[in-house]
């Protein structure tokens, strides 16, 4: 899980899930706690999906929130 997907790709990561920033990957402090939780729960869920998904090449898994 990384914000800088280009960096993750360059170092050879295969399953990638975008996060929202460098200093706060999974929860923007300027938003309400509830929203931060929703985002974090969602993206960690996408990471779990990524772990069980067969892939052939480097893949960035889409996030909704």
């Amino acid at each position: 899980m990384a914000n800088l997907i280009p960096v993750a790709k360059t170092v050879g990561a295969n399953r990638m899930v975008p996060t929202i920033s460098i200093p706060y990957p999974l929860g923007d402090p300027s938003t309400p706690e509830k929203e931060q939780w929703k985002l974090r729960y969602h993206r960690v869920g996408v990471a779990l999906t990524a772990l069980e998904t067969p892939i052939e090449e480097q893949t960035v898994f889409e996030v909704r929130i």
Binding site: P23, Y24, P25, L26, G27, P29, Q36, W37, R40, Y41, R43, V44, G45
Partner: peptide, 15 residues
């Protein structure tokens, strides 16, 4: 600042 206030933003243990 953001990680110090809530480290789960970096290591999402809670989720």
């Amino acid at each position: 600042a953001a990680a110090d206030t809530n480290p789960n933003r970096v290591v999402p243990l809670d989720a």
